[in-house]
């Protein structure tokens, strides 16, 4: 090993090294507790009992599909809203700076605050219902709080995550040279063709990054779920914390949910990224 390589590896220690140790220890901790080790009370022995118990629980499968649904829809919706905005903001114009800061504003609002503002807005005697009633659209306010489809959670996820996707996509879109798009224009490609054949393939990496990050965030959501989510189904993170606090073998059982949540986030986001790649390739070839 030459001197520079050795130096580089040493330099990685405090930052990257710490990250690796930390994440490794935490994941091993979860793995160990899920099979009965590191018990705070009682003896620590190897057992599959917690996995069997949790996998037989139908709350888990419901939570799994629910979190999967919320994460997929939120990720796809966020990037679909972000793309047109990113393209529009590609070339600076008067007021574009202002518009882009305005669009980034939700990044500043704490998730719980956003959830509260939303619930306040749609509540039975909230603004939206009062407007509906005054316009004569309905005779009695509609009950929208904690809707059982998770629409509230998806709206909040998109509201909060779209600016993030916008940041990533704006950067990617701006780095595409005008010569390429202009050349395509000269060859008679319409706006849609240019988007599908040039912009999408060239911004694939940023698109995948946005999808992955939003998917993982939404799959592990707790704060939107507790304030605005459905009452009759839990998200995986909510289930994990509830089991940890309420059950006699709380730590062990929640460790199994934690591992499932990690797998869901990783595999789900990777699949989403892969499918996106295939779809875009197919679209560009057509």
């Amino acid at each position: 090993m030459n001197k520079q390589t050795l130096l580089a590896y040493c330099l990685l220690l405090p930052g990257l090294g710490l990250i690796i140790v930390f994440i490794f220890v935490i994941i091993s901790m979860a793995l160990a507790q899920s099979v009965g080790y590191f018990n705070f009370s009682g003896s620590s022995t190897f057992t599959w009992q917690f996995w069997q118990q949790i996998l037989a629980d139908h709350q888990l499968s419901r939570a799994f599909f629910y979190s999967l649904k919320i994460a997929t829809i939120s990720a796809i919706l966020s990037v679909s809203f972000a793309y047109p905005l990113a393209l529009w903001l590609r070339d600076p114009f008067r007021g574009s700076q202002f518009v882009s800061s305005l669009l980034k504003a939700p990044l500043l609002v704490h998730g719980l605050v956003a959830a509260f503002l939303y619930v306040n807005f749609i509540s039975f005697n909230g603004f939206l219902n009062q407007i509906f009633v005054h316009l004569g659209l309905v005779s009695r306010p509609i009950r929208m709080q904690n809707d059982s489809y998770g629409i509230g959670v998806i709206i909040l996820q998109v509201w909060k995550q779209m600016p993030f996707a916008l940041l990533l996509l704006t950067g990617a879109v701006q780095s595409i040279g005008h010569d390429i798009t202009d050349a395509a224009k000269d060859l008679g490609a319409g706006a849609w063709t240019r988007f599908v054949k040039i912009i999408l393939p060239l911004t694939l990496k940023a698109l995948q990054a946005a999808l992955i990050i939003i998917f993982i965030g939404a799959a592990g959501d707790y704060s939107f779920q507790i304030v605005a989510g459905p009452i009759d189904v839990s998200s995986l993170a909510q289930l994990m914390l509830r089991i940890q606090a309420n059950d006699a073998n709380g730590w062990n059982l929640s460790a199994t949910v934690a591992i499932l949540l990690m797998l869901t986030a990783l595999i789900g986001s990777a699949l989403l990224a892969l499918i996106t790649q295939q779809v875009i390739k197919w679209g560009a070839k057509r």
Binding site: Q33, F38, I216, L261
Partner: peptide, 17 residues
């Protein structure tokens, strides 16, 4: 890596650690 592991998993097992 820290961005990829769901934050509540990190938090819960970090507190256990």
């Amino acid at each position: 890596l820290p961005l990829i592991v769901p934050s509540f998993v990190v938090a819960l097992f970090f507190s256990s650690l």
